[in-house]
Simulated scan of single mutants.
Amino acid sequence: MAVNEYRLRPGAAPRKHRIGFWWIVLSATAIAAFAVLPYATQSLRDLAADDKEVAANYVDRAVWLKTVFYLHVGCGGTALLLSPLQFADRVRLRLPRLHRAVGRIVLSAIVVAGSAGLILAWTNLAGPIGTAGFGTLAALWLVGAVNAYRTIRRGDVAAHHRWVVRTFALTYAAVTLRLWLIALTPLFVSMQGIDDHLAFLRAYLIVPFLCWVPNLMVAELWLLRDAADPRRAGGGSGA
């Protein structure tokens, strides 16, 4: 993509947009580290012994399924960590080669992580609800990545931007899932008088849809606002 394929919005980005951008960067970085580093530094058995429910769910699975799990964690973390960079105006406008290179890495990581997610959806902690919720998330994630690639290959920058926004909303589910668990687990402990482990499992029954449906709704509202305001063409952060 050439630099002139994007139109820089007049003036600096509003302060609230910059704050929102940096919140996304910092939260994505924190969750990418929080979600990936334990699996890079400890074995599943050690994590399971520390009462990590997800690790316990996979510790005794077949080797091929554990490999799929690690691919999902590693590639998903990569996509989450690098995706915010694609929304930075300075990178997109001034370093188009870097923008393209990072974009290829992100889309490739999503294809691997999403494909792995389709498999893992059948062995998740939330049972049929999780299979439906996480399976749909993985399928839509793949659809978004493929369409983001196809639209930019044919030179349709506006459509590419729309698909990138939708795809990132689904990538960001890794953050919102954990935020919902952080909020819901102690809520269930206090309201139902149960221990942390059982509260976590009950919260996990809710998040398979809650972690991504609101994200996608916000993304669509954002895109509608973009369409109604031509000055916002390009959709970057202003950062």
Rank of each mutant, 00 (worst) to 15 (best):
A2T: 12
A2L: 12
N4I: 01
E5H: 12
Y6Q: 13
L8N: 11
R9L: 05
R9Q: 14
P10H: 10
G11W: 06
A12S: 14
A13P: 05
P14F: 07
R15K: 10
H17M: 10
W22C: 06
W23Y: 09
I24E: 05
V25L: 08
T29Y: 05
A30Q: 01
A32D: 06
A35K: 04
V36G: 03
V36K: 04
S43F: 10
R45M: 11
A48E: 09
K52Y: 14
K52F: 12
A55F: 07
A55K: 07
N57W: 01
V59P: 05
V59T: 12
V59M: 14
D60E: 15
W64K: 03
L65Q: 13
T67L: 14
V68K: 10
V68I: 15
Y70T: 08
L71W: 13
C75P: 01
C75E: 00
C75K: 00
G76N: 03
T78E: 02
L80N: 05
L81A: 15
Q86G: 01
A88H: 04
V91Y: 07
R94D: 13
L95R: 15
P96A: 09
P96W: 10
G103Y: 10
G103M: 12
R104A: 11
R104Y: 15
V106I: 15
V106K: 09
L107M: 11
I110S: 02
G114H: 05
G114Q: 02
A116C: 11
G117T: 06
L118I: 04
L118V: 03
L120P: 06
W122E: 13
W122L: 14
T123S: 15
N124A: 13
I129T: 11
I129N: 05
G130N: 05
F134E: 04
G135S: 10
L137G: 01
A139T: 12
V143L: 13
G144Q: 07
V146F: 11
R150G: 00
T151V: 00
I152H: 08
R153M: 12
R153E: 14
R154Q: 15
G155F: 02
G155S: 04
A159Y: 00
H161Q: 15
W163S: 05
V164K: 02
R166A: 03
T167P: 06
F168K: 03
F168S: 05
L170C: 01
L170D: 02
T171A: 08
Y172E: 02
Y172P: 01
A174H: 07
V175S: 03
R178S: 02
L179W: 10
P186C: 02
L187V: 06
V189W: 00
D196H: 13
D196P: 00
L198W: 04
L201G: 00
L210Y: 13
L210S: 15
W212C: 02
W212F: 09
V213A: 12
N215K: 04
L216V: 13
M217D: 04
V218S: 09
V218L: 14
A219D: 11
R225I: 00
R225A: 09
D226Y: 08
A227E: 03
A227H: 03
D229W: 06
P230G: 04
P230D: 00
R231E: 14
R232E: 15
G234S: 11
A239C: 01
